[in-house]
């Protein structure tokens, strides 16, 4: 019984982040979000303490929204500072934080021309701006394109694994 419990304790858990949700983990646990289309998955981590946070943002800015109390994890402009604060609260050094991001695709192909909504690229721009304002270096990104992504972050190796419908999983 004891050994069984020990095994359970040392096995890494995968914490699932839903759409417009965010969360933090400490090694060896992992963070995962499935089905990023135009949404962007943002990972902030402190390489030294192995603390990481992930947020699945849906829209660029809370300014244009009509919600009275916008959800911090839904809008890129609110989510980046929110996530930086969350990881710092659980022990990450805010000055050591670095970022990896993935998503922001334009999912639909139109015979007539471009996708007028352009939500994916706008989400990416808003995330990049948020990172720049907080002076958080972006160390890797896999954004744009036309395919959806499922991502999983391993804090120990600091690899962000990316899975798509077509390709073999890869990491950045």
């Amino acid at each position: 019984m004891n050994s069984e419990r020990e095994v359970q304790q040392t096995t890494a858990q995968v914490i699932k982040i839903g759409i417009a949700e965010g969360g933090t983990v400490q090694a060896p646990n992992r963070l995962r979000t499935t089905g990023l289309g135009s949404c962007v998955g943002v990972v902030l981590y402190d390489p030294l303490t192995c603390i990481a946070g992930m947020v699945h943002v849906m829209l660029p800015s809370a300014h244009s929204c009509r919600e009275l109390h916008p959800l911090h994890t839904k809008y890129a402009d609110l989510a980046v500072p929110w996530l930086a604060e969350q990881v710092s609260n659980v022990g990450a050094n805010p000055h050591r934080l670095v970022a990896k991001i993935a998503g922001g695709a334009q999912m639909f192909v139109y015979a007539g021309g471009a996708d007028l909504m352009r939500i994916g690229p706008r989400n990416v721009e808003a995330v990049l701006q948020g990172l720049e304002e907080l002076r958080i270096p972006l160390v890797a990104q896999d954004v744009g394109g036309k395919t959806g992504r499922t991502i999983e972050f391993d804090v120990i190796t600091q690899n962000l694994w990316i899975q798509t419908a077509l390709k073999v999983p890869y990491f950045i």
Binding site: G35, G37, L59, A105, M107, F108, I119, A165
Partner: peptide, 22 residues
């Protein structure tokens, strides 16, 4: 004009639902 995509359901849905999700 219709747009098409063959991909993960989650990725298709989040793209379509995010503008109305506000």
């Amino acid at each position: 004009v219709p747009g098409v995509s063959v991909d993960m359901a989650g990725a298709i849905l989040d793209t379509v639902l995010s503008p109305i999700g506000e």
